[in-house]
Amino acid sequence: TRVETATETAWISLVTALHLVLGLSAVLGLLLLRWQFPAHYRRLRHALW
């Protein structure tokens, strides 16, 4: 049971790290898009909202 718990903890930390990385890359990508294509971003936002 001790090994299982350790594996579970490792998986949880791995998944958390993955989610953090994905979230950060998504935010960075959005910022980059907004910085590179302001007109396109505004049009996209206008279409979405």
Rank of each mutant, 00 (worst) to 15 (best):
residue 29 G to W: 10
residue 12 I to C: 06
residue 47 A to N: 08
residue 48 L to S: 04
residue 48 L to V: 10
residue 37 F to M: 08
residue 36 Q to F: 00
residue 48 L to F: 04
residue 8 E to C: 02
residue 9 T to R: 08
residue 32 L to F: 07
residue 13 S to D: 06
residue 41 Y to D: 05
residue 36 Q to I: 13
residue 34 R to N: 05
residue 9 T to W: 10
residue 46 H to K: 13
residue 29 G to K: 03
residue 24 L to M: 09
residue 47 A to Y: 13
residue 17 A to V: 08
residue 25 S to H: 07
residue 21 V to M: 09
residue 16 T to G: 05
residue 30 L to R: 06
residue 38 P to E: 12
residue 18 L to E: 01
residue 18 L to H: 00
residue 16 T to W: 05
residue 11 W to F: 13
residue 14 L to A: 05
residue 11 W to M: 07
residue 18 L to Y: 02
residue 41 Y to S: 12
residue 28 L to F: 05
residue 38 P to H: 12
residue 9 T to S: 09
residue 2 R to Y: 10
residue 7 T to I: 06
residue 22 L to M: 07
residue 1 T to H: 10
residue 46 H to G: 09
residue 30 L to G: 13
residue 22 L to H: 05
residue 25 S to G: 08
residue 43 R to L: 07
residue 3 V to Q: 01
residue 28 L to Q: 02
residue 10 A to W: 07
residue 23 G to D: 03
residue 40 H to A: 14
residue 6 A to R: 14
residue 22 L to Y: 10
residue 6 A to D: 01
residue 33 L to M: 13
residue 13 S to P: 03
residue 12 I to S: 02
residue 24 L to C: 08
residue 6 A to W: 02
residue 5 T to H: 03
residue 27 V to N: 03
residue 11 W to G: 02
residue 2 R to A: 13
residue 43 R to N: 11
residue 46 H to I: 09
residue 45 R to G: 01
residue 39 A to I: 12
residue 40 H to S: 10
residue 1 T to N: 07
residue 37 F to P: 00
residue 17 A to L: 09
residue 10 A to K: 08
residue 5 T to D: 04
residue 29 G to L: 14
residue 11 W to H: 05
residue 23 G to P: 07
residue 41 Y to Q: 07
residue 22 L to R: 03
residue 26 A to E: 07
residue 26 A to S: 09
residue 10 A to E: 13
residue 43 R to G: 06
residue 23 G to S: 06
residue 48 L to P: 08
residue 3 V to I: 11
residue 37 F to R: 04
residue 38 P to K: 12
residue 21 V to A: 15
residue 12 I to Q: 03
residue 43 R to A: 10
residue 6 A to I: 05
residue 20 L to R: 01
residue 40 H to T: 09
residue 7 T to M: 12
residue 37 F to S: 06
residue 17 A to T: 07
residue 24 L to Q: 04
residue 35 W to H: 14
residue 37 F to V: 05
residue 27 V to L: 10
residue 32 L to T: 12
residue 27 V to R: 02
residue 30 L to V: 11
residue 7 T to R: 04
residue 41 Y to N: 00
residue 9 T to K: 13
residue 13 S to W: 15
residue 47 A to F: 15
residue 21 V to E: 00
residue 35 W to C: 07
residue 16 T to A: 09
residue 14 L to V: 02
residue 17 A to E: 08
residue 23 G to C: 14
residue 26 A to I: 08
residue 45 R to W: 07
residue 3 V to E: 00
residue 42 R to I: 05
residue 16 T to Q: 08
residue 1 T to S: 10
residue 1 T to R: 07
residue 14 L to P: 01
residue 11 W to S: 00
residue 48 L to E: 10
residue 6 A to C: 00
residue 40 H to M: 12
residue 42 R to T: 12
residue 14 L to I: 06
residue 33 L to V: 10
residue 34 R to G: 06
residue 19 H to P: 02
residue 20 L to G: 07
residue 33 L to H: 01
residue 31 L to P: 05
residue 1 T to D: 01
residue 6 A to F: 10
residue 23 G to E: 03
residue 3 V to L: 09
residue 21 V to H: 07
residue 13 S to K: 04
residue 47 A to K: 11
residue 26 A to V: 11
residue 36 Q to H: 14
residue 32 L to K: 01
residue 24 L to K: 01
residue 46 H to V: 08
residue 48 L to T: 06
residue 14 L to W: 04
residue 13 S to I: 12
residue 7 T to Q: 07
